[in-house]
Amino acid sequence: MTDKLMIKMANPRRPRRKLPRNDRYGWSFISLAVVILALFMLYPIVSSFIMSLYAPRQGFQPKFVYFSNYLRLFKDQVFLQALENTLIFFIIQVPIMLLLALCLAALLNNKAIKLRGLFRVGIFLPAVTSLVTYSTLFKMMFSLDGLINKFLLKIHLISSPIPWLSDPFWAKVTVMIAMTWRWTGYNMIFYLSGMQNIPDELYESATIDGANSFQQLSKITVPLLKPIILFTAITSTIGTLQLFDEPTNFASGGVTAATIGPGNSLLTIAVYIYNLCFKYMPNYWYAATVSYAIVIIVAILSFVQFKLAGERQ
């Protein structure tokens, strides 16, 4: 009997359960991705939440203040204005854009329409432009002596130029028009791919039963597209709540301007977070709190959308 075996017999231990061979390979393949995810996603998420519970002190280490930063949000007039602006963008722009995308997708799914490929490419084209480029372009087009005002004056729709970018109301309208232009084609592609997966037999039997096109759209297409509509609604909600590029580029003076848009009308929550970190006296701790406010709002809105759509999974 060898020494090794004698030692083993003297110290009986439960054998270590080995992972099945396939599991070991699986874990080794995804280990790098897991480490990177943990380092660059999980750690910042946890770290920023911990940061949101601290407040800076002059000359000292930040102090743990429990949820005071969160209570401060309710009294912060600038945050409330940013929240109001963001919600206005969300409530008005998102439904218009999704409805428009759905109508365009329904039309482009109609086999009787000629040149569908051309229309599809043309309408999707805005989605490939960079956010800064299209914001700058729209800022030029919507300026007081820009193309849009010239056109509207020429067809005598208005008697004096509309102050698209210098009036709080029109500034919001301009950003909404620009966002709708940029994102409608993108959402349309999702709807179109969903519609192409709906079997033709359903429409055929509906036609035989005497259903008209509108009834087919509302009773077949929309119910079957519900998961995709939910997906686009949630991604659009998140996108709108993180709105940053358009307001900063539309505001004269960009991020360095005193106000974002006339009378801070384009100040969104994401812009406010930027301002808290880099424009005002840096307060990363409060900025982390505002970031978590967005997380909470997105969670609530997504939950409401799930409930409205009646999705269980």
């Binding site: 039309l107 329409i113 229309f119 309408i123 084209l125 805005p126 372009l137 087009m141 232009w181």
Partner: peptide
């Protein structure tokens, strides 16, 4: 005949909507 006219009008409206969307989408590139 009336039904056919209605269908033609609907198709015309569909094309008009698509062309308008196409022009608005492509115009800024010009």
């Amino acid at each position: 005949m009336k039904m056919k006219m209605k269908l033609i009008f609907i198709r015309l409206a569909q094309y008009l909507f698509l062309v308008a969307a196409f022009v608005i989408a492509v115009f800024p590139f010009y």
